[in-house]
Design a protein around this nucleic acid. Structure first.
Lengths: 182, 182
DNA sequence: ATGCATACTATCAGTTTGATATATGGAAAC
DNA sequence: GTTTCCATATATCAAACTGATAGTATGCAT
């Protein structure tokens, strides 16, 4: 399940350009599988070379040509193989948590700044999910709904944890602030 | 906050070899910041070249020499700069969720397999955290405890969500299984 | 008129991944 | 007794990915 495979999967719901796929990644997909142009364009080129997708050039006035990719039968087969993988990975790369691991080397202010920023990002993410909403019509949306719900659950848990436990990181610096400010 | 910076941070609690750092990454750090030999060794070499760490060769009998790295004053300064970054990232790369996004292209059995596998991994992770336990003695452990707690919270939320919602992915395939099996 | 956003493509240095190689000693399996 | 596996320790490499940058055109705001 690399970027190539995910692109292949996205193309099952219709032909699209690299630009389209990027927007797709940015909206719903973005939070759990990041991909930029630097990986999408090479992925599409490689897929075309292997015959898993075909490319059609659509000239446009005043804009660069759109290169619209469609999945082939071979591409569908390849995708099915990838979906048979029994042990898919799930990796987190968090500068945020890595920083807070070293919280004892940070100032009270620095800690608050990074936590506030993270809470902000989580809120933005939850808002995005709300705007998207769930789709109850198409059967092919069950997966998307499930994943969106997963995102909601994790984001909420993240938010709650940060709000309820941030005091443990600044308590050592402020020493019994609660009674001192009365 | 790349691998270099995290290595620098780990070295603040004592000199260590690349092998030691790998074990460190694998145990407590592993779940939110993955790093293999392929990134650790080059990171240490690069840090040594920049004068942010020093290296001491310790010959051993029957085993390759240990290269033990220590952080320098310049290294500490560099680390402090990195810890001042106000907007640390937090990225997820989930083949698991990417697969389930395409659940409508998967068989009932495939879906159950990947969810069972993920639940297994989450349980292993929670067990690992329990074995590690919290350290209440050193002030420098507040960050580690906070991060471990975060991991516990997220893992628990993940487990609950998967257990409570997996039925939505297989319901379409089994159609009213609940009453049919009575 | 200058800057910025949208629409579209594409490249590239630097970083990371995951597998593999090398070498030895000890424990466990057969 | 010997093969096989694991732990200790280093290191490299192709393939993949990141994040920034670049180019080209339209339109909209300031």
């Amino acid at each position: 399940m690399d970027v190539k495979t995910v692109c292949l999967g996205m193309l099952t719901s219709g032909a699209a350009s690299g630009y389209d796929l990027k927007k797709y990644f940015e909206s719903s997909f973005g939070h759990f599988f990041v991909a930029g142009y630097g990986s999408i364009y090479p992925a599409l080129s490689s897929l075309a070379e292997s015959g898993l997708v075909t490319c059609r050039d659509i000239p446009q006035e005043g804009k660069p040509d759109r290169k619209v990719y469609s999945i082939t039968a071979a591409g569908r087969q390849e995708l099915m193989c990838a979906l048979a993988k029994p042990k898919p990975g799930h990796k987190v790369r968090s500068e945020f948590l890595a920083m807070l691991w070293f919280a004892h080397l940070m100032s009270h202010e620095q800690i608050n700044t990074v936590i506030d920023y993270r809470l902000d990002e989580v809120d933005k993410f939850l808002d995005m999910l709300d705007e998207l909403g769930d789709c109850d019509e198409h059967e092919e949306c069950t997966g998307a709904n499930f994943v969106a719900g997963f995102g909601r659950a994790i984001a909420t848990a993240c938010k709650n944890y940060l709000e309820e436990n941030r005091h443990t990181l600044v308590a050592g610096k402020t020493k019994e602030l609660k009674s001192a400010t009365g």
